[in-house]
Amino acid sequence: MQQKIIILDFGSQTTQLIGRRVRELDTFCEILPYNKFPKEDPSVIGVILSGSPFSVYDKEAFKIDLDEIRGKYPILGICYGAQFMSYTLGGNVEPAGTREYGRANLASFDKENPLFKGFEEHSQVWMSHGDTITKLPEGFKVIASTDKVVNAVYQAEGEPLWGVQFHPEVFHSVQGTLLLKNFVVDICGSKQDWSAASFVDTTVAELKAQLGDDRVILGLSGGVDSSVAAVLLNKAIGKNLTCIFVDHGMLRKNEFKNVLHDY
């Protein structure tokens, strides 16, 4: 059974980047809407909660029932994800005086915490938030701070649940990939036995088994998703696939001709 990390998407513009970083660790992950957690999937080994354009106290903010995942999987909340867990479990999240956007450095961190294995002193991180965690829930502890953000990283005591205010997935968090590796590999236990190539082979085999001699019509938009679907189906069923690319009149100049040539 293929292990997987689930990323619950709360609408962050960097959710796909989090997924990319996890896959670069040779670990399969699925990005799912915040309210679509696969409760009966035994292959899940960990959960990441993404950022969001909302504040946790907004009426429109996306929310989940943490009881469905807490205590069952290691959890890492990033930015909104960290604020949401703190706010939901009894902490305080309030508007910061000014939006903090840009480079910061860890003024202190718990060197013994598994999330910071291999970290260097004053490691540079990247902040992007308008709210801040002013009080942690009972039973939670601060494990890293910057000069401006006291609760930059926290953990629930005796529990594999972490919240990170900065964005480890972006390039400017210099050791961000290491933090994700510590979570995905050391904490969640990824065997790092997944690759994009193995995903293609597995998917093609599954398509062959599911479709058999069936014929398939696929609408192509010219985008990545439908193009990848076409390639995988073509590898699986060959001439039994018919693709249709429609010039609907809303394409850019010469786009229909250029995309059709590429296809």
Rank of each mutant, 00 (worst) to 15 (best):
M127S: 06
Q83D: 04
L232T: 09
I133S: 05
V224T: 03
L251K: 13
D65I: 03
T202F: 14
G19F: 01
Y73G: 02
R215C: 10
S198G: 01
P42F: 10
N240T: 00
V56F: 07
T134R: 06
A230L: 04
L66V: 13
G139T: 05
I45H: 04
G163N: 12
F10G: 03
F28P: 00
V224I: 15
V246K: 03
V224Y: 09
G238D: 14
L17T: 13
Y87F: 15
K181Q: 14
N151Q: 13
F37V: 07
I31N: 06
P42E: 15
I45P: 01
L32T: 09
P53Q: 07
A229D: 00
I133G: 08
L218W: 10
L49M: 09
T15E: 05
D213A: 12
D262M: 13
R252G: 13
T27G: 09
N254C: 05
V246I: 15
T202M: 12
G11I: 05
Q13T: 06
D131C: 08
L232M: 10
K36L: 10
G130N: 04
M85E: 04
K141N: 08
R23Y: 09
E159G: 01
E112V: 00
Y154Q: 02
G249V: 01
L232Q: 06
T242R: 14
V259G: 02
Q210H: 12
G51K: 03
T98S: 13
T202G: 04
I48K: 06
A236T: 02
L180R: 06
R252N: 08
I237N: 05
A107F: 04
D213T: 13
L251H: 07
V259E: 12
I244S: 07
G249S: 00
G102D: 05
F116D: 08
D58H: 12
E60G: 04
D65E: 15
C243R: 05
I64E: 10
W126Y: 15
K117T: 14
F84R: 02
L89R: 02
I64P: 11
F245V: 02
G163D: 11
N105D: 08
F140C: 14
E120Q: 14
N35C: 05
A229I: 06
G158S: 09
S108Y: 02
Y263M: 13
S190I: 07
H167N: 11
F183S: 06
L207Q: 10
I143G: 06
D110G: 06
F166W: 11
K39T: 14
N254Q: 13
K208G: 10
S108T: 06
T15A: 12
V44K: 04
H261T: 13
V185K: 10
G249Y: 02
S86R: 01
L161E: 11
K135P: 03
L17A: 07
S52D: 02
L251Q: 14
C29P: 05
A61C: 08
I133T: 14
S195F: 12
R23P: 10
A144P: 03
G97A: 04
H261S: 12
L161C: 12
D186M: 03
I69C: 04
A96T: 01
H167Q: 11
M250I: 14
G102T: 11
T98L: 11
F37Q: 03
Q155I: 09
